[in-house]
Design a protein around this nucleic acid. Structure first.
Lengths: 334, 334
DNA sequence: CTGTTAGCGCATTCAG
DNA sequence: CTGAATGCGCTAACAG
């Protein structure tokens, strides 16, 4: 009962392999009677087509690739859930290309994987999640006609799914303003990515619209990780006390957690001494009771596969841009 | 520059495709001179062999499958890190088979994936993580000679990597005993899996060895998830106060977190009113300052791939059982 | 050492 | 409607 091929089925059913192949791909050009007979043999022999052979003949693999900077990030995990669910409905497999190596993002791995994906042809298309693809990289996909969709990133020439960061940052800031805060600090991530830029803009816009002061010394730029949140908060705590903010908006939950650590170390607490709001709504923030801006991660994943599968199947280029709306989740940190 | 095949390379280098194939697989049977020439053409044409075709000819895919009940579990994420790193060194791809569907473990999906893996032959071997494989399922792999290694599970006829749960539970319990606790509760997961049984045994053994009472009303059996931890803790809090334990040992961190919620809701706190210790050392527990038993998840993943790749390459059956040692991580919950 | 040929398992013409 | 032949891109065995 080892390897049963299409030939075994054909012989057993007294037909040619062509016929078997036809019923497999449910072609109309086969009589109901023989179809039934073949189907029965297939079931009896527990036959299933070999993915490699089929892929080679069809020039399709029946699987998609996921390109991600760090599989272990909370953000990705949530997106992955959506991807899984979307994929399930398609009966496609998922190949994971994790750019992260030994806990550090390695740009050479990104390059390496992209090369591999593009030439090995093990996947029919790829979902790049939070990957900051360069224009040149994207073009390579286009040239080779390998469907690509960007999740949580934006590029005008490629289907992308992203979140309205400007709106999210405004919501966060406005929540703080509604709570009557006048001196609000902002711990931002990088400024050379869309997310950082838009969140900054959202923050400033909200303040200006409410006629509240924007204080340079309360705006910090670092990284989206915890250490950076910690460092930035320490800098703020080093300010003269009279310049302290009453509320802090961190551009990511994980930064907020870092900031929280700095706050606690300094003998202060949240929300008594400082109000704190994060961004992302990762699972952790629920346990830490952190107020935050929820990104629709699951939906992004699910929508992402849908777009990708669509573009694989239709194979005519159709660029779809989808902007999702983040929403405020109020917990106990402010 | 679209699809460059081995023929293009051969023509361009004035050799036969056999020669090209040989340099690709670094066979010794090719002169240095032609080898260099071919290599140069390969680089110039940016040629990379098609994975499908190679797989078909070689009967090897160059990728392994991961079978897991829930990609989003913290435990799995950590293991995955190890897997990734191990795989990186082998240049193999990773195909994810997630049995979880719509947030609930679905046994029919397990069946479905196993069938798919076994017949589609898209992967050369599989790593089953925390999968509770039945004897019959394992036998199917053996019959079809598809290498399988179990991670965090044990089956004598298959290479397995697991943790000494008895020892882990003893360590946890002994820590509590060293802290002078006399009435210790145990919130266990299922009792029909090795983990549950061993942890129960470890718990009881530790108590008995120290001549401390084992109280039936303080031993609860549920599930390894948060809800179950919450429920079990509530039951304990419903006991007459005089019967309250002074410490609680939860069989998983996530259960401990559920228990913590119940404790807080009842107006008590940790570690003031109850000492609490968990099991697993997932990332969350660090932030919640939960004392726990650390499972070497990363190592399990890494070791797992190594065993698997070994068995794929050598292809002679060699069953290796590896038991790892868990260790106590003391934080602030006790 | 190197070119040629025969499959790997399947989908897809092309005849019948 | 159906069977036989051809090719997908590559490896391996076989001649030179």
């Amino acid at each position: 009962m080892s390897k049963v091929t299409i030939y075994d089925v054909a012989k057993e059913a007294n037909v040619g392999i062509g016929t078997v192949s036809r019923v497999l791909n449910n072609s109309k050009r086969v009589s109901d009677k023989t179809k039934k007979r073949v189907l029965k043999v297939i079931k009896r022999l527990k036959y299933q087509p070999n993915a490699m052979a089929r892929g080679l003949a069809l020039q399709k693999t029946g699987s998609i690739g996921i390109l991600v900077p760090a599989v272990t990030s909370h953000f990705f995990i949530e997106v992955l859930k959506g991807v899984q669910q979307g994929l399930e409905e398609q009966d496609m497999d998922l190949v994971l290309y994790n750019v992260n190596y030994g806990d550090s993002y390695d740009i050479t791995y990104k390059e390496k994987y992209i090369n591999r994906i593009l030439s090995e042809k093990r996947v029919d298309g790829v979902l790049a999640i939070t990957m900051k693809m360069t224009e040149e990289e994207v073009e390579r996909f286009k040239n080779l006609k390998v469907p690509l969709v960007l999740v949580n990133d934006f590029y005008e020439k490629i289907s992308s799914i992203f979140v309205d960061d400007l709106s999210g940052a405004k919501k966060a800031t406005n929540h703080l303003i509604a709570l009557n805060h006048k001196r609000i600090a902002f711990l931002n991530g990088c400024m050379d990515c869309r997310q950082g830029q838009d969140r900054m803009k959202g923050f400033e816009t909200a303040l200006i619209e409410s006629n509240i002061g924007v204080y340079d010394e309360l705006i910090k730029i670092g990284d989206f990780d915890k250490e950076s949140g910690y460092e930035m908060m320490k800098e703020i705590l080093n300010l003269p006390k009279k310049d302290y903010p009453t509320a802090i908006f961190a551009a990511s939950d994980i930064q907020a957690i870092g900031a929280l650590e700095a706050i606690n170390e300094a003998g202060y607490s949240v929300p008594e001494d400082f109000s704190l709001i994060g961004y992302d709504n990762i699972e952790l923030s629920k346990y830490l009771k952190l107020t935050t801006i929820a990104q629709p991660m699951f939906e992004m994943g699910k929508l992402g596969v849908e777009l990708l599968v669509d573009s694989i199947q239709s194979d005519k280029e159709k660029i779809i841009q989808k902007e999702l709306e983040p929403k405020l989740v109020i917990r106990e940190s402010c």
